[in-house]
Design a protein around this nucleic acid. Structure first.
Length: 318
DNA sequence: GAGGTAAACCCGTTGCTGCC
DNA sequence: GGCAGCAACGGGTTTACCTC
């Protein structure tokens, strides 16, 4: 039996037995322990999910649940998968980036030449442009994993107001305009808040997991459908014609937007109190194109910001 | 602590292949 | 045919870990 045949037989033996050790394999294949070890290492490097246990009852196990069965794709399905992959390439950071790269390599390697040809053509004719930000998000995968497992993590966050350390329970991650965001329940402010992944400079799993909200009862879909968490306020914003056009493509104002027959519009929905500050910053850019009727707190925030700007320029001019 | 197991080394042997 | 290079293999030793 040559090496290739032996590797194949070892793989079949592993699939037939839930657990095995070196001695059993050396007896079955009539080779030395050293050779079996080399074979197992080679199989592991090829992607076979092997798990070893030390000790008296130690041995090897094949993590069969972690290995997918062979799947057949049609030509169009294969090209479609690569199209999806291409759409992600513009992002400098992705969760499970190395795994995505490895999976695509395997997929491309085993694709027939005609499919490869279509994929290469696709690369020349389709481009998903993502705004380049050049910001590192080293904890993106950790945030995603924490949201999947409902873990509380301790983060160091660099906000505009300064650096803070806080415990959060992420509900997911999403990307917009080339940036990665992580909505999460913040145990310090006791409400859901939005964090920029690139502003997280340190992340560790929190020691105290007893506070975790399980089940969370609030997920990324709730976040996007605008179901607020925590204390809320009724929002009523009137928009000019130009303001309504702009609000249609504004993620903060599109929700709850109604455009009247004359082109003007209004935004009417519930908003979390914690979001008002962010809304005020956005509305400042609308100038007179948007007028806040409610809540009063948002009006005050806008006035305060406007006054700050006025003082700044009055001082510079005089 | 003893004994069983895997992991990680090192080194020597064997067989195949290509080159001169 | 002789030689070098390489891959595959085997044996030995030490270390780490686990169970009893």
């Amino acid at each position: 039996m040559n090496k290739a045949q032996r590797l194949l037989h070892i793989l079949m033996t592993m699939q037939a037995h839930r657990k095995f050790n070196l001695k059993e394999l050396t007896e079955e294949f009539g080779v030395s322990k050293r050779t079996i070890l080399r074979d197992l290492q080679e199989l592991s490097e090829l992607g076979v999910p092997l798990y070893s246990e030390l000790g008296v009852h130690g041995g090897y196990q094949l993590l069969r649940d972690r290995m997918l069965p062979p799947i057949h794709f049609s030509d169009k399905e294969a090209v479609a998968l690569f199209l999806v992959a291409e759409s992600l390439k513009g992002y400098p950071m992705l969760p499970f980036e190395a795994e995505v790269e490895s999976a695509l390599k395997k997929f491309y390697h085993y694709s027939p030449p005609s499919t490869k040809e279509k994929i290469e053509k696709l690369r020349s004719h389709v481009l998903f442009h993502v705004q380049e930000r050049g910001l590192d998000t080293p904890y993106l995968t950790s945030l995603l994993e924490a949201s999947l497992e409902g873990r509380i993590v301790t983060i160091t966050y660099e906000a505009e107001k300064g650096t803070s350390e806080r415990d959060i329970q992420p509900i997911g991650v999403y990307t917009a305009s080339g940036l990665w965001y992580c909505p999460a329940y913040c145990f310090r402010s006791r409400e859901h808040r939005l964090f920029r992944a690139d502003r997280i400079t340190a992340l560790t799993v929190a020691e105290d997991q007893s506070r975790r909200i399980d089940p969370p009862g609030y997920d990324l879909r709730d976040w996007f459908t605008g179901r607020p968490s925590g204390e809320t306020a009724e929002l009523l914003i009137h928009l000019t014609r130009a303001g309504a056009v702009r609000a249609k493509s504004d993620p903060l104002l599109a929700e709850g937007l109604t455009v009247h027959a004359d082109g003007r519009g209004c935004v009417r929905r519930a908003a979390a109190i914690s979001d008002l500050s962010c809304l005020a910053d956005t509305l400042l850019g609308y100038g007179a194109k948007a007028e806040v009727e409610a809540p009063a707190l948002l009006r005050e925030m806008l006035l305060q910001r406007a006054n700050e700007i006025r003082e700044l320029y009055a001082g510079a001019g005089g």
